[in-house]
Design a protein around this nucleic acid. Structure first.
Lengths: 336, 336
DNA sequence: TTGTACGCGTTATCAT
DNA sequence: ATGATAACGCGTACAA
């Protein structure tokens, strides 16, 4: 078994420097490149990552930080899909992924991540308006890409969607469908998504000169909060409920059903995310598609670029959203 | 900023070998140890992992391989909890975690994992009776711990539960509750859990001298298969349904409800896993608790031990399961 | 107990 | 285009 670049060099009849060049796309004559490459393939040689990392300063490993409470994490498929999107894109770039979940304090997590001087860069979920872990990573010299962002960020690279715009569009869709008393069950307050979607909803209602004060109830992105919120809103006599995400909508749907009301005839229902299950609800759920996997993939490619050009301009990517109108808000052929 | 062991040595007035000993619990006099440690703490010095790895051969990073189809992965909270259990335990041991999901072929994944000569060891989910990725890892010289196992394994270290025994116990519980026509919706065929739970069910039925031929329908561990399976079984006039896992039970519960039947009065319902939501179903679900997080944690500590003593005996851990009897199978006070 | 010196496998610099 | 050689930062025989 050929284990070092020196053995390989001997086998190919060149110096180890040349082998290194072949391995790293340095300038080598075509003839020798082919000869060396043949030996590399034949012996299935892989350079040792630690040695490579030590000498070059980069490792081909990126960190992914999802510091989310374990009760929230993975309860909402949003995070799973994000993880899969990143995992896919990283594999495509033949990079490895180190993962940190929220099982230690933010300080300790930050400490460890910065301690692993092995990382080429880091992708971190930044869903809260304020987050010391995110601040710490941005303050470090580790290339960092946020998923989500804080409006105060002026220098950070991030990937996000325009929650305000999307929520406005959804609310407008409900208005145009003839709904007037449109309730909103918010996401967790203090999160970008929660606050921005509320803002978009309010903006559309305000533009239509409709009051919304008694039509907003706080949720937390989870199903139970959807059920609780819907109960309150139904008592207030709403004819539509716009939930801050799909999981919340599932809870709302259950309560609407339990009260013997029909969707969409009596109450229109809308979500946000377009997770896999949304299309398979009964009735299929109108929602906002935000391409969660794509966000993960985009974060990865932004990070790759940032690693390649550390002094380049920060990349701020706003991915498009799409209104996905299904039967939970419109017409709805009555079932036989 | 102190970045190398040499600078630290100079600062402490000792050689770098002594600093290294302090860092790695070598034999040093108490006095110098204290003096050096003080400087280490004060400067918040961390040895460079790549250099350390290059010199010592170990890295403090373990691989976690969950090569599951993306449509299955994370749809069932089982995998999330497993991941969290491992993540927790690894953080406790101040080890890092590299994650591989199933986004490439098994061959390619195996190739990459073995290529990263950085790993101290791997934990791999081995839910299928046959799995070339698992075989490849076991055949390599990388310390490997399986979660789940194949009965043919004689030398591998693994963590698992006794599915046969647990399923037998659950079926017996249903029998003792007076049920006779007990249906079973299997897990995915070809998986250890699917096959073994079926075996346990059959064993109990056979012991009670009850036929079960027309009472078994194949599922795949997911909710839709629970709905489909329940529809078939109800047509066969069952008075109890034992589902291969909790997710399946949710689907079954929905269909039972839709038919206007009551749980447990008309049909008793049982699951397997005791995932978080099981206790909050209506009615609360009788199930088998298998401590998924604990399995993850145990796998980590088994791996740590294996890394420490590579030639030690393989550790095979069968974690206990617990029958959790809730109202979906017994009595059930009629609600007001 | 402590220090010296070498090795780990690679990349990068400087000649040629 | 290629080769010698010096880093990269740490662990560890071996010597003292």
């Amino acid at each position: 078994m050929v284990r070092t670049i020196d053995e390989l060099a001997k086998l190919s009849g060149v110096s180890r420097a040349t082998v290194s060049r072949v391995l790293n796309n340095g300038s080598v004559s075509d003839a020798t490149r082919r000869r060396v490459q043949a030996v590399v393939d034949r012996t299935n040689f892989r350079p040792h990552p630690a040695a490579r990392s030590l000498a070059s300063g980069r490792s081909g490993v990126v960190g992914v930080v999802m510091h989310i409470d374990s009760h929230l994490l993975f309860r909402d498929p949003y995070f799973s899909q994000l993880l899969q999107g990143m995992s896919d894109a990283l594999a495509d770039g033949s990079a490895g992924m180190m993962l940190w979940l929220g099982n230690r304090s933010k300080e300790e997590t930050l400490d460890r991540i910065l301690g692993i001087r092995l990382l080429d860069g880091v992708i971190v979920t930044a869903h809260n308006l304020d987050d010391s872990l995110v601040d710490g990573l941005l303050a470090s010299d580790l290339p960092t890409v946020l998923i989500g962002h804080r409006s105060a960020d002026r220098t950070a690279s991030y990937v996000d969607v325009d929650h305000v715009h999307a929520a406005d569009a959804m609310t407008t869709h409900l208005l145009e469908s003839g709904r007037r008393r449109i309730g909103h069950i918010t996401g967790m307050r203090g999160t970008v998504a929660g606050e921005d979607r509320l803002t978009g909803y309010r903006r559309a209602m305000h533009r239509a000169r409709l009051a919304s004060d008694d039509l907003v109830v706080d949720g937390d992105f989870n199903e139970p909060s959807g059920a609780a919120g819907a109960a309150v809103l139904l008592d207030h006599g709403v004819d539509a409920i716009f939930c801050a995400n799909d999981a919340t909508a599932v809870g709302a749907l259950r309560v609407i059903r339990e009260r013997g009301l029909r969707v969409p005839e009596d109450v229109a229902l809308a979500g946000f995310d377009d997770l896999d299950f949304a299309a398979h609800l009964d009735p299929p759920l109108t929602t906002v598609r935000q391409g969660v996997r794509e966000q993960g993939a985009q974060a990865v490619s932004s990070l790759f670029q940032l690693v390649r050009d550390r002094d380049g301009a920060p990349s701020r990517v706003i991915l498009p959203t799409e209104l996905v109108i299904r039967q939970s808000t419109v017409g709805g052929v009555p079932r036989a």
